[in-house]
């Protein structure tokens, strides 16, 4: 007889245990690799020196200042992309004419390398905060439109037909059927996009900034301060993980009706 293993549920405790173990394993591997002396400190810092770096930069306040400015940039870039991208994406996923106008264009632009735009963006909008926000916006917007369009498109035809036969016209069908029905998927899309936003944040700050986490990494690179590079990368990873978890949590709380129903 076949024992079913594929997609078999495991208990929540087990899940958390394994997740913690994987992080621990990474940490142990790191400790071993850097502690054994096989790899030079300049290539791979000891966890201890990264911790020291954190403590120091917390003490002199630079960590918080840099994290704050990065979070500010990412929030604004992302919020602009969302405010503009969601309505357009819904229109693209709902009306063929909108799709014909917007989709091919977006497909084209999204393959352009955003980091390569950075020098141009500096020329266009200057080197202040708006430049970084623009990079994040451009990096996420076109992708977001396409993904939101897919989310809108994924609402079953029969659900829309049922609405029509209940007397719902175009406007009501969009606002009372398509938008609520796509909500859980939309949240997932946003969750993915915020991940992209973090990537573009680094691109923006690597080139055009003198503050922020990305900038800290770049500066440390110049002086081969590997502990600070590691510290910056890990912090960005951690912040990304936290935002991701917030979105996942919201999705579960707000859209419990969709659980297992997709």
């Amino acid at each position: 007889m076949i024992k079913i293993k594929i997609r078999k549920e495991i208990s929540k405790r087990k899940y958390i245990l394994f997740a913690v173990l994987s992080f621990l394993a990474l940490l142990v591997a790191w400790l071993l690799a850097s502690g054994s002396g096989a790899i030079k400190e300049i290539f791979l810092p000891r966890p201890g020196s990264v911790v020291t770096y954190y403590l120091e930069s917390i003490k002199d306040g630079s960590l918080w200042i840099n994290a704050k400015i990065s979070i500010y940039r990412i929030t604004l870039g992302f919020v602009y992309a969302v405010i503009l991208g969601i309505p357009i994406g819904i229109m693209v996923g709902t009306f063929k004419k909108w799709e014909a106008v917007i989709r091919p264009l977006c497909e084209f632009i999204r393959y352009m390398p955003v980091p390569a735009f950075v020098p141009l963006i500096m020329v266009w909008v200057g080197i202040d905060e708006s430049a970084k926000i623009t990079v994040i916006f451009i990096g996420t917007f076109f992708q977001l439109v396409l993904m939101v369009a897919d989310d809108a498109r994924s609402v079953p035809d029969d659900l829309i037909s049922a609405g029509y036969t209940l007397g719902s016209g175009t406007g009501n069908t969009i606002f009372k059927i398509i938008i609520p029905a796509m909500m859980p998927r939309l949240m997932e899309t946003l969750r993915m996009m915020i991940g992209w936003a973090w990537t573009y944040l680094v691109s923006a700050e690597l080139v055009a900034a003198n503050t922020g986490l990305g900038y800290t990494i770049l500066k440390s690179q110049r002086f081969l301060k590997t502990d600070a590079i590691f510290g910056g990368i890990l912090l960005i990873g951690l912040l990304g993980l936290i935002t991701d978890r917030i979105f996942a949590f919201l999705n579960k709380k707000l859209f419990s009706w969709a659980e297992g129903g997709r």
């Binding site: 029969d158 659900l159 049922a162 029905a181 009706w257």
Partner: peptide, 18 residues
């Protein structure tokens, strides 16, 4: 065109899940 004067029940489940 469609309208509320003709109700329809589909083979697939079309209740609004939310």
């Amino acid at each position: 065109g469609p309208g509320a004067d003709r109700g329809m029940v589909f083979q697939s489940y079309t209740l609004f899940p939310w």
